[in-house]
């Protein structure tokens, strides 16, 4: 566990907060849209965490992760730091999980920040003094869903980063992959007969979504762990 924390520490210094305020522009822009603009546009409806609001929140991790995760392995390779790291005693799993956890925490943190900021702003400016809070069950589900989507994005990002030569390539593939994923999900949802959805409550639908995401996370994380091999990386 201490090895994973060491990697998280290093990632936070080297990648997440490396460029001072410049590196925060993109995540803060996302928080500005998701935590300020949209909540003020939606008004009290935002606090209900409707399906549309929930779907919008799930974009946050993708936006944040695309900026950073490509750097995970491809960045180390590009800057010639990977070989030295691989020659150290740091276990494979700690390297990989440290990079994933650092990115997930960052993306999830941005999601939570957007949720809380949105709530405060709606309460301050759009509820005429009637203080509201997210329905607790939906708030917890939102936190879990943002976490699961963060893990999905980070695992996919690391998998791509393991296979490409440059950070730019990784970011491009991840951007295209995100669009394909979103369109794929939309296509699948549209293909499901309408009566299936009408028979499900909102809570049931969210539970199914969480289960599907958890399975996808497990598969991608497992693939990333299997793919991370020192001998293969040293030759690449």
């Amino acid at each position: 566990m201490s090895d994973i924390l060491t990697m998280v520490w290093k990632e936070s210094k080297d990648v997440l907060f490396q460029g001072g305020w410049k590196s925060l522009i993109r995540p803060l822009f996302v928080v500005g849209i998701m935590g300020i603009y949209l909540p003020l546009q939606f008004g009290p409806q935002w606090v209900d965490l409707t399906p549309i609001g929930m779907l919008l929140l799930l974009w946050i991790p993708f936006f944040v992760i695309i900026s950073f995760i490509g750097d995970a392995i491809a960045g180390e390779r590009e800057r010639h730091t990977l070989e030295t790291l691989l020659a150290s005693r740091m276990p494979d799993r700690a390297i990989l999980l440290g990079k994933i956890i650092a990115t997930v925490l960052y993306a999830w943190g941005m999601g939570v920040l957007s949720l809380l900021l949105g709530l405060v702003l709606v309460d301050l400016f759009r509820t005429q003094g009637n203080w509201m809070f997210y329905p607790l069950d939906l708030f917890v589900v939102a936190l879990v869903l943002i976490l699961l989507v963060s893990v999905l994005g980070a695992s996919a990002g690391v998998l791509i980063s393991l296979r490409v030569a440059t950070v730019r390539q990784a970011q491009q593939i991840l951007s295209v992959g995100t669009i394909v994923f979103v369109f794929g999900v939309t296509f699948v949802l549209r293909a499901v007969p309408a009566n299936v959805f009408s028979s499900l409550s909102y809570a049931q639908f969210l539970l199914i979504a969480m289960a599907v995401l958890a399975v996808l996370d497990a598969i991608l994380l497992g693939l990333a762990l299997v793919s991370f091999q020192r001998s293969r990386l040293i030759l690449s």
Binding site: K13, Q18, R79, H80, T81, T84
Partner: peptide, 25 residues
């Protein structure tokens, strides 16, 4: 090990670079 490249994290300070490898050890 000092391999083909110095393998330093250029965005980190010298102290943090050493600290990272000290933590690894």
């Amino acid at each position: 090990a000092l391999l083909e490249f110095a393998g330093l994290y250029e965005r980190m300070t010298a102290e943090d670079n050493l600290d990272f490898y000290g933590r690894i050890s």
